[in-house]
C-alpha cells in the first residue's frame, strides 16, 4: 500500500500493477477446485482465462482478491505477496465485475458507485458524486445516474458495474464471465468498454467464453481444466496451434 502512487486521475487510467499466483491450491468441501495454479499477468496487460465450466476459472479470480483464501500457494500484486495484507484493503486495489452484475438494487446507479467512495475512500458526498459521474460518463451512462438498476438493460447494468469498480481506482480488474448473462445484442457494448479499458493500460484478468475478445484484446490466454492451467501463451499460438489434446478438443467444441 505504501509504495503505491496515489494518482489523482479521474478519466484516463495510468498503468496498473502485475498480478501473479504461485502454485495456488484450494479445496471447497471435498472438491479439489484449484490444483496448483501459476499465472503471471504483467502490469498493463490483459490475460484471458478460458476453459470448460467447473474448471476453476471463477474460483481462481476469487482467490486473487481473496474472496476465497487459498489453502496453499501465494498471490502477488506488484511482485509482493498479499496474503498477509488486510483483505478488505486488498480488495480496494482489485476491482471485480460479476456475471450477474450484482448491482445494489435498492440504490440508484449513482449511489451504487458513491457507496464505496464515501464509506471506504473517505470522499465527501460531492466529491464522490462527481467522480461517479466521471466514471458513468466513461461507460456512456451519465444520464442514468438517478435511475435504479432494475430499470436498466443487462448491458447497461454491467457497464454500471464496471464504472462502480473503476471508481475505486483499482490497480487490477477481474472480470468473471462479464457477458455470459447478457442477451447477445448487448454483449458488444460491454466488450467494447472492456477493450477500451485494456487499451488504456489497466491490468486485467478476464474469465470469458468470448473467444473473439480473447483473441483480439488479450496479450495472453490461459486454458484451464480440472483446476490446472493446462496451456498458456499468446492468443495466436493458443488458438491456432494448441499443443495439448484437451485444448484442441475444447476449441473444437466452442469455435
Amino acid at each position: 500500500m505504501t509504495q503505491q502512487t496515489r494518482s489523482s486521475h479521474t478519466g484516463a487510467l495510468t498503468g496498473g500493477v502485475g498480478v501473479a499466483t504461485r502454485d495456488v491450491q484450494l479445496s471447497l468441501g471435498s472438491n479439489h477446485v484449484l490444483r496448483g495454479v501459476d499465472l503471471e499477468v504483467p502490469a498493463a496487460s490483459t490475460a484471458c482465462v478460458i476453459g470448460p465450466s467447473g474448471s476453476g476459472k471463477s474460483t481462481l479470480l476469487r482467490v486473487v482478491n481473496r474472496l476465497l483464501e487459498p489453502d496453499s500457494g501465494d498471490v502477488l500484486l506488484d511482485g509482493r505477496s498479499v496474503l498477509g495484507d488486510d483483505p478488505d484493503v486488498l480488495r480496494q486495489r482489485v476491482g471485480m465485475v460479476f456475471q450477474h452484475f450484482n448491482l445494489f438494487p435498492h440504490k440508484t446507479v449513482r449511489a451504487n458507485i458513491t457507496l464505496g467512495l464515501t464509506r471506504l475512500k473517505g470522499l465527501s458526498k460531492d466529491e464522490a458524486a462527481e467522480r461517479a459521474l466521471v466514471h458513468l460518463d466513461r461507460v456512456g451512462l451519465a444520464h442514468k445516474a438517478d435511475v435504479r438498476p432494475g430499470n436498466l438493460s443487462g448491458g447497461q447494468q454491467q457497464r454500471v458495474a464496471i464504472a462502480r469498480a473503476l471508481a475505486m481506482e483499482p490497480e487490477v480488474m477481474l472480470f468473471d464471465e462479464a457477458t455470459s448473462a447478457l442477451d447477445p445484442e448487448l454483449v458488444k457494448g460491454v466488450l467494447a468498454t472492456m477493450a477500451d479499458l485494456a487499451a488504456e493500460g489497466m491490468t486485467m484478468l478476464v474469465v470469458t467464453h468470448e473467444m473473439g475478445f480473447a483473441r483480439s484484446v488479450a496479450q495472453q490466454v490461459l486454458f484451464m481444466d480440472h483446476g490446472r492451467v493446462v496451456e498458456a501463451g499468446e492468443p495466436g499460438q493458443v488458438f491456432e496451434a494448441p499443443r495439448t489434446e484437451r485444448l484442441q478438443r475444447f476449441l473444437s467444441q466452442v469455435l
Binding site: 482478491n65 474472496l67 478488505d88 484493503v89 480488495r91 480496494q92 482489485v94 476491482g95 471485480m96 460479476f98 450477474h100 450484482n102 448491482l103 445494489f104 457507496l115 464505496g116 464509506r119 471506504l120 458495474a161 462502480r164 469498480a165 475505486m168
Partner: peptide, 12 residues
C-alpha cells in the same frame, strides 16, 4: 452475490 459484490468493493 450482493454480499460478494460489497466485499469485492472492500467492505468487511
Amino acid at each position: 452475490g450482493q454480499l460478494e459484490a460489497a466485499r469485492a468493493l472492500g467492505f468487511s
